[in-house]
Amino acid sequence: MMDKDFAARRRRDLIIAAVLAAIAALTPLFVKDVVVQNILILTLMYAGLSQSWNILSGYCGQISLGHALYFGLGAYTTELLFTKFGVLPWFGMLAGGVVSALIAMGLGYPFFRLRGHYFVIATIVIAEIGLLLFHNWEWAGAAMGITIPIRGDSWLKFQFLRTKLPYFYFALALCCLAWFVTWWLENSKWGFWWRAVKDNPDAAESLGVDVFNSKMGAAAVSAFLVAVGGSFYAQFVSYIDPESVMGFQFSLLMALPAVLGGIGTLWGPVLGAAILIPLTELTRFKFGGSGRGVDLIVYGTLIVLISLALPRGLLSLFSRPKKTGAAR
């Protein structure tokens, strides 16, 4: 009975996702304003990033506030390969993903022994170490960062002067990919293991579940996708420096949409990003120029209110009646 419901829900999710993606793909036909397009790109990017973060932190329950490390590694690998060796960003993107996934697994060995706040602080600290090292690494531009030379519109080099459409479709693809990976993992062996790990790590271990390897898998997938996001961001902004791709704020911006939308859920990150990112942009447009911190007050208050009022995230507004219905 449960399995049938589950399978039906998964089918429904997939159909909804396809419809939403199709609608999203058509929006540029109606939305010509580059500012709105810019907001849409950032929203899709953060939805994808948060979805990726959600794999490790939501599904697997390992709260990371250091994913900026992978974001930055993706950005730096791509741009160092491009500016120093002329490697096209498409390859750099893959290379960045692989580097990040390997580092995530390397870090996993010692990190996954840690629990709770010890783990969270370890992730913050490792990202800070990365930030400081890049800040002092002369060859990688140190504080000066890397300016990506723009020579005109080129799909090969993935750079475009004024049009935002290629960036938009890439961000959409990234978001869809991260969603689909999550959707697929939910029903995989790993997915079941992660739910077990999250619910009760000790019991899962005693049941013979390979807790450790499943965590490593989550870390690698999550880091890979986030790094791809980082390299996209570097191409999109066409300038990177340590602070602007590896700063703590990115770790937060990956976590916040999932938390606000509904952590450990398939739709939480997308919903969270769809509300949070336009909101931050609009509050900055509206109040940012005042110099009085009003945007911070509005933004912070909303985070507090949503966290308090909807501990399961905004998604619980939609799913609660259905859930109780299913239980009956």
């Binding site: 810019n38 999109f236 602070e243 900055r284």
Partner: peptide, 15 residues
């Protein structure tokens, strides 16, 4: 017209 870039190159770009 004043705009806030919050010391972030991406936000400066968007603004």
């Amino acid at each position: 017209v004043f705009a806030d870039h919050q010391a972030d190159p991406q936000k400066g770009r968007a603004e």
